[in-house]
């Protein structure tokens, strides 16, 4: 962004955001390399613009509610490990917005994005300016060694490409995040995101088209592809994000345990089971997929019988 565009970005943010959120955007920790970009291409002004756009979605479209932000370490590196779904990966964006505005001191969640997006024009630029990184192990390790908060979806693209009937049934976790957590001694915060997997019900996957376009899946939803790109606008489901107590595997296992496939697989399964339990629990408490006026239970913590949920 040129300097004049940066000024415009700030004046737009000033006109649209309350003072405390603006303050967070101006003051979140940011390692400027001298030209306004951080080592991974994030730019404070672009991140602020992305935040402005996403926070409206966060408030008025998805009505995001969250619990347990105190479980996310306030400083130092950590991995956030949520479920993944919903065709368009807005769950990562909502997670980042939520962690940014709820935490006592603001931190940007650096979500790890599938590599195929790195080859797409504009997508590549928007993602990296907004603070996201592309899924290469060295990128994650570099972020961790700089003490960043990394959002990593161990289900990968096979998570977002789930059919509607399989919503909230986790695909088997990839094990890379456990290896990184053991080697670099970082905590893993299990996160469940409820609502994302209903936002765009995927009815079928046109695999040949996906192969042709070089993307992991090509979804058919009630609105896509026949309504064009507009069909990718998600349904206004209600998001519930829950952060649970972090796993600190490095306290029990030495870094060289990362070389043992059995241990790594077992620990990945342990995290997967925990996230699945959190999802099942949240789903059983949820009354409605959409934010209907009478589904107040999770917001107030009180169910219709007047007892604590």
């Amino acid at each position: 962004m040129t300097l004049s565009w940066r000024r415009r970005a700030w004046s737009l943010a000033e006109s649209l955001l309350p003072a405390d959120e603006l303050d967070r955007l101006r003051n979140f920790p940011f390692q400027d390399l001298g030209y306004g970009y951080d080592p991974f291409g994030m730019e404070r002004e672009s991140a602020a613009l992305a935040y402005v756009a996403l926070v409206f979605m966060y408030r008025y479209w998805f009505h995001v509610e969250s619990r347990g932000i105190q479980n996310v370490p306030a400083e130092g590196a950590a991995l956030l490990v949520p479920n993944h779904g919903g065709v368009v990966p807005l769950d990562g964006a909502m997670l980042a917005v939520d962690a940014f505005r709820q935490a006592a001191s603001p931190r940007v969640v650096r979500c790890v994005v599938d590599n195929f997006a790195a080859g797409m024009p504009w997508v590549n630029t928007f993602m990296s300016r907004g603070g996201q990184v592309f899924g290469e192990r060295k990128n994650v390790e570099d972020l961790i060694s700089r003490g960043e908060l990394v959002g990593l979806f161990p289900e990968g693209a096979k998570g977002t490409g789930k059919a509607f009937g399989e919503r909230y049934r986790l695909r088997r976790f990839n094990v890379g995040f456990i290896e990184i957590a053991l080697r670099h001694r970082v905590p893993i915060v299990p996160v469940s995101i409820i609502g994302s997997e209903e936002q765009a019900p995927m009815l079928a996957n046109l695999a040949p088209v996906a192969r042709l376009l070089g993307v992991p899946y090509f979804p058919v939803t009630p609105t896509f592809p026949h309504l064009g790109l507009l069909g990718l606008v998600p349904l206004p489901t209600c998001y519930h994000i829950l952060y649970e107590k972090p796993f600190r595997f490095y306290e029990e296992y030495p870094p060289k345990a990362a070389d043992d496939p059995t241990i790594v697989r077992m620990l990945a399964d342990k995290v997967q089971v925990r996230v699945q339990e959190m999802l099942d629990e949240g789903l059983s408490q949820r009354e409605s997929v959409f934010n209907l006026p009478w589904s107040t239970e999770l917001r107030t913590g009180v169910n219709s019988h007047g007892t604590n949920a």
């Binding site: 991974f40 590599n115 195929f116 997006a117 290469e136 192990r137 570099d142």
Partner: peptide
């Protein structure tokens, strides 16, 4: 290419 890390050692 899209799979190379940002920092190359």
């Amino acid at each position: 290419d899209p799979t190379t890390p940002v920092y190359l050692n």
